[in-house]
């Protein structure tokens, strides 16, 4: 019985301290037995049971010996973790649905398509949970303690400066940013979008060979944006460093979009049945003009965003 009890306690202890702590608990149990029931070679079951009950439940006993509360994710970060899951999983699901619907074969079996989408969402959601958990576990392990929780020797200097109104992040914008980036990431990486089949069931308008050249840049842009948004959600404020990173990511994103919008080979309508090569080129030109207009609009938005960051940074420098 004592062996079982020690084994149960051991499950809650770290491997490094397990042997030593269990040895001590065993000695304490026998001390209790000896003092209460006398020195014997073998104790009755009810005597052992009373000693164990007196000691407490395995979990409670083990927790009393733990130096630090066992947790995979820092308790102060739990809310951010769940909030992110609530944003990312629906965004991934939406991205997969859009990608599937765009590439759908009009004669496809609808039931199979739905099952396929559910399967993709399930496996993507599991991946998202896994990756997020790893990121947050690493944050807990490697972020300095004072960033997450105050140690007992904290001083007033440890208090982080509360953000002024202009430094506060907008939760709505951040959530939208994460959702948009995740959606983009899923959408652009979805096989169904970039595969140009020979089948007439698909309407391939993107030149895969050209698109694949840009895909790593698109992915870098989205992943870095997601990481920045997660950091902003944790810090709950803009800092000079995050403003600079955000501006750099804006410029990088516009640069990638520029590469795509101004590449005449990016779109290819010639594979659409019934459209000649010349007509395909004309349509592509038209769409390309639309993309250039879109590029101009996004460039203006980015310039406004960068100007906003710069003005706030300049004001802050003047205040010093």
């Amino acid at each position: 019985m004592i062996k079982d009890y020690l084994y149960a306690i051991g499950k809650y202890l770290s491997p490094l301290q397990r042997e030593e702590v269990l040895k001590e608990i065993q000695a304490n149990l026998y001390d209790y037995l000896e003092e209460t029931f006398g020195d014997k070679d073998r104790y009755e079951d009810h005597e052992v049971e009373s000693a164990i009950l007196k000691m407490g439940t395995p979990k409670k006993v083990a927790e009393a010996y733990l130096d630090r509360q066992r947790a995979l994710i820092a308790p102060p970060l739990l809310d951010v973790y769940f909030l992110l899951l609530k944003i990312v999983i629906p965004a991934v699901s939406l991205g997969l649905v859009i990608a599937n619907v765009i590439s759908v074969n009009p004669e496809a079996n609808l039931g199979l398509l739905v099952l396929n989408i559910i399967g993709q969402i399930w496996s993507a959601s599991l991946s998202v949970i896994g990756v997020m958990t790893i990121i947050f576990a690493l944050l807990y392990k490697y972020l300095p303690d004072k960033d997450l929780e105050f140690s007992e020797e904290w001083t007033i200097k440890d208090l982080e400066k509360a953000p002024e109104p202009v430094e506060r992040i907008s939760i709505g914008e951040t959530i939208f940013g994460i959702a948009f980036s995740v959606l983009g990431l899923v959408f652009f990486n979805s096989d169904s979008l970039i595969v140009i089949g020979n089948s007439i069931d698909y309407i391939p308008v993107v030149n895969t060979a050209v698109f694949n050249n840009y895909l790593p840049l698109i992915n870098i842009s989205f992943v870095l944006s997601i990481l920045l948004y997660i950091y902003l959600l944790i810090k709950r404020k803009w800092q000079i460093s995050t403003r600079i990173i955000s501006m750099a990511l804006d410029v990088f994103g516009v640069f990638v979009f520029w590469l795509i919008a101004f590449n005449p080979n990016f779109l290819d309508f010639s594979k659409i049945p019934g459209i000649s090569v010349n007509d395909g080129l004309k349509i592509a030109e038209g769409v390309q003009i639309g993309m250039k207009i879109g590029f101009a609009a996004i460039a203006i938005l980015v310039i406004v965003d960068i100007a906003k960051h710069l003005i706030i940074m300049l004001k802050k420098t003047k205040d010093f």
Binding site: E24, I25, N28, Y32, K54, M55, G56, V61, A64, Y65
Partner: peptide, 22 residues
């Protein structure tokens, strides 16, 4: 040792649980 200390404390009027003291 652990249990002798519990007894020493109890004898002097301070009851302590094993799970707290060890």
């Amino acid at each position: 040792y652990g249990y002798s200390l519990i007894q020493a404390l109890t004898d002097k009027g301070l009851d302590v649980e094993q799970n707290t003291l060890y």
